[in-house]
């Protein structure tokens, strides 16, 4: 009898223990499902935020491109055609010696306008850039910069050039174009050096000028447009997973570095 009661107590204890383990497992499943729901909501929120940021960046890039086109047309092509109009307006048929000179000047100016328009079109033509590839596109653009602004330019490459994803190359090219535009407009430089490193699984582009440089923190705080341009370049770099760094020392020039994981497409 005593043995029976001891057995019963033992069975009850072990049964309770087994029930405890089973409860633990059930509670785990319930807790897990609740946490999973929270996890899914957080993931959806982060994805939504990312898409918003991406869309905003794309819109800013579009605005910037249109702004650049309008500036280019106004500053260069518009000015040249205005000069041609001025020449045509001041032509005097009774003075053949000046007439010939004015016609010659006008022809040169129209030729320059056509050349500038073609360069602008090529620079904006995505398929042209995609066909040439990143390296040749940068080489071409650097050549244009050298000819237009009287700069001494140099392009150096290190490593075996690799052709990457067309979209990534296009975005990188646009960033480099933007840097060139800033050098032409603001840097007052005489030399521009580009170094492109094709490392295993990585690409590094370094653009250095010997211009007047600037105090980076001062310009970001005082000039919102400057900060906007810098932010646009950073946003574009982020789109392709690139790291964008800008360093500048007043009177000593500016260096822009782009580095990202890069492999053959």
């Amino acid at each position: 009898m005593q043995k029976l009661s001891e057995d019963i107590v033992l069975v009850i204890i072990i049964t309770l223990f087994i029930l405890l383990i089973t409860s633990f497992i059930v509670i785990f499943i319930i807790l897990y499902q609740k946490r999973h729901q929270v996890f899914i909501k957080e993931k959806a929120f982060l994805q939504h935020q990312f898409h918003q940021t991406l869309l905003q960046s794309q819109l800013e890039i579009q605005e910037q491109t249109l702004h650049m086109i309008s500036q280019e047309i106004h500053d260069n092509i518009g000015q040249v055609l205005s000069l041609v109009k001025l020449n045509l307006g001041t032509m005097d048929l009774n003075k053949p010696e000046t007439l010939q000179q004015k016609i010659t000047d006008s022809k040169e100016l129209v030729g320059k306008a056509i050349h500038d328009l073609r360069s602008l079109a090529k620079g904006l033509n995505t398929s042209f850039i995609t066909e040439m590839g990143l390296l040749r596109s940068i080489e071409y653009e650097l050549d244009m910069v050298g000819k237009s602004g009287g700069f001494s330019t140099r392009l150096e490459t290190d490593g075996e050039p690799v052709k990457g994803d067309a979209k990534i190359e296009l975005i990188l090219f646009r960033i480099v174009q933007e840097v060139f535009n800033n050098i032409i407009k603001h840097a007052e430089a005489t030399e521009v050096l580009i170094l492109i490193n094709f490392l295993p699984g990585e690409l590094k582009i370094t653009i250095t000028d010997n211009g007047k440089g600037f105090d980076l923190s001062f310009y970001i705080n005082e000039n919102p447009n400057f900060g906007l341009g810098l932010r646009n370049m950073q946003n574009r770099a982020q789109l392709v997973g690139a790291e964008f760094k800008l360093t500048s020392i007043p009177r000593k020039g500016t260096t822009v570095t782009l580095s990202l994981p890069f492999s053959s497409s």
Partner: peptide, 10 residues
């Protein structure tokens, strides 16, 4: 699993 509940329907 509780710390990283990534799986739907454990």
């Amino acid at each position: 699993k509780l710390a990283h509940p990534a799986i739907a329907g454990i």
